[in-house]
Design a protein around this nucleic acid. Structure first.
Lengths: 333, 333
DNA sequence: CGGAATCTTGCAACGCGTTGCAAAACGGGT
DNA sequence: ACCCGTTTTGCAACGCGTTGCAAGATTCCG
């Protein structure tokens, strides 16, 4: 038996509107009635029904948080930051797990049914068409960890993956490595493509630099390990790898060490993300730091801004990354 | 401009009720009108509003998923299983991150505002009073990874932590270790207490068994590492540790290896959980497997059953665990 | 073909809260 | 006490969909 506005109104001896106004920011209400209402409300344990309110205010403060990365440990940090950030602004995350899905239709439908105020697509592997589907359904959307562009279809917040690829190549070449390798995630992901493009472009500016390319079919430890094993079986002589993700790096390193190769003694590895685990003693992965807190903060800012102005023309924000030196590359000469 | 029931009704030339019934399972409607309505609906891109519906049906199919474990990688698997399991039953998880909170009041309020149909508290570190607060607010609740009991306050699904403690002790003693150690999580957590109780009880049945006890102040790598470092600094001669969590085990192992102790050569370690990472090549943690899929499946079953019968008397389900042999204990003599 | 049984349908009221509007209450100045 | 300008208040309609009820349409049967 839920207690409603009406019960409170009766007990306080005022009209329903008065009670409503008592719980509405900035509504006109006298101190006296407010006191009466508040007493009645606490006595009855009244809690306003957001969903009924949303019918007239047309705002639910519900945000769809859509992701398909439930196997990359870095996403636990990401969910932590997103949920805390949203809660701090009085928004509530409705989580959608896409792990088995590839078509946006079902999640669009689900989020429309719940009248979410906005959607955050948090994934570096979903194609940009996925986020577009939400926009087409009239939902404000921001693609976090997507591919920044000059004239994006939807709001994007992420990093310059091409620049990261170049940074990785410059770093490796600066350490005197000559035969480089790129170990990417799923080949179709734009992030993979961009990181590779930057890496290759920078490498090609340095004559005498060799290049090997491999793809893992997921951003996971096993996929990284398997891909590296395949490389080794094929007789790889690569001196240093740029892996498109930390968890891929860890899988690759485990394959290298199993093959009695020392990292960084025989082969160097640089990752990307700087997940928490990369800093663990004993892991000590040299990697390119992706500024999660800033990206997520900006994504939430954008979605919050769209609540007020849904038609805001999409823009693209890109945050700078930097190399975090740990223990999987040899020292500069 | 959202399209509503009314628009569809007008376009199809029928009443609003007819349209409503068309989207209601098992309502009486003729094939002819159904066809008319469905055509109009797809033409307009109509999507029923769950929230408005919930006003009369008193069911939102929203489930609050409450947790404070956003730093233990195993929880990514847990969220994956929960979100998929809920979605498969047509339920939607509203995620509440308690990382900074200790009082239930705010989350209770938040979930009441959204009229969630039920709440799953997924945490092994929250006191049982936390889950009780939801029950007291009239919300069906199940505490996953809580402490099973004979007459629980709320529904509980978990493991028999005392039995796990005993199992760990039996395993270590069976390998011929004589000086044992327990490295627990936060001392106040009931899981820590129970695992320790079982471990000590079993150890005490074997005369000549030594015992050291340490607590980490969180279920995290760093906390485990720090606690183990403190033990080593104090001159620990423990031969084998039971760590109350895998991520604690990893921290402990890193401290041991930094101190030039080999695992399992000099010191044995057994963890608890069997997180994905425990099976990674190069990690190979011997551990007690906690059957996540079953626990989560059962939790969802319980919460789903409570949707129909909210007054169901609370019960407690406990799933058996088993030792997973990998590489951090020496072989049996 | 008539009448009873069964389906379908629309009406109107309801779920919970919000809000424009006009009436009522209040405050201040003379 | 009176008048005028502000607040404050309640009424009533609305947001979107559901549902009990009774009337209308079908079907079935003899």
């Amino acid at each position: 038996m839920t207690v409603t506005l009406k019960h409170v109104a009766e007990r306080a001896g005022v009209s329903r509107s008065a009670v409503s106004r008592c719980f509405t920011e900035g509504a006109s209400i006298s101190g006296k009635t407010r006191a009466k209402v508040e007493r009645a409300a606490t006595e009855l344990g009244y809690c306003p029904n957001f969903l009924a309110r949303s019918l007239t205010t047309r705002s639910t403060r519900l945000i769809g948080l859509v992701s398909n990365n439930f196997h990359n440990p870095v996403f636990l940090q990401i969910f932590d930051l997103f949920t805390r950030g949203l809660q701090d602004r009085g928004l509530s995350p409705l989580l959608v797990n896409l792990s088995e899905e590839t078509a946006p239709a079902r999640s669009v439908q689900m989020l429309r049914q719940y009248s979410v105020d906005g959607v955050i697509v948090a994934s570096s592997t979903l194609p940009s068409g996925f986020a577009r589907a939400f926009r087409d359904a009239g939902l404000p959307v921001v693609h976090a960890f997507g591919r920044p562009a000059d004239r994006p279809d939807v709001h994007v917040v992420g990093i310059d993956n091409v620049a990261c690829g170049r940074m990785a190549a410059r770093t490796l070449i600066g350490r005197g490595y000559a035969r480089l390798g790129f170990l990417g995630g799923p080949e179709t992901a734009s992030t993979t493509q961009d990181r590779m493009a930057g890496f290759l472009a920078e490498a090609s500016r340095h004559p005498g630099t060799g290049m090997a390319i491999r793809f893992a079919d997921a951003y996971s430890f096993d996929a990284g390990r398997t891909a590296m094993q395949a490389g080794l079986a094929a007789g790889s002589t690569t001196e240093a790898w740029f892996c498109g993700d930390d968890v891929l790096s860890l899988g690759a390193i485990s394959a290298l060490r199993d093959a009695a190769l020392s990292v960084p003694g025989d082969v160097g590895v640089i990752g990307l993300n700087d997940m928490e685990m990369a800093g663990w003693a004993g892991v000590a992965l040299t990697t390119i730091h992706q500024p999660f807190a800033e990206i997520i903060g900006a994504s939430i800012d954008v979605v919050a801004a769209m609540l007020d102005d849904p038609a805001r023309p999409p823009d693209s924000r890109s945050f700078p990354c930097r190399v975090i030196e740990r223990g999987t590359l040899r020292a500069p000469p």
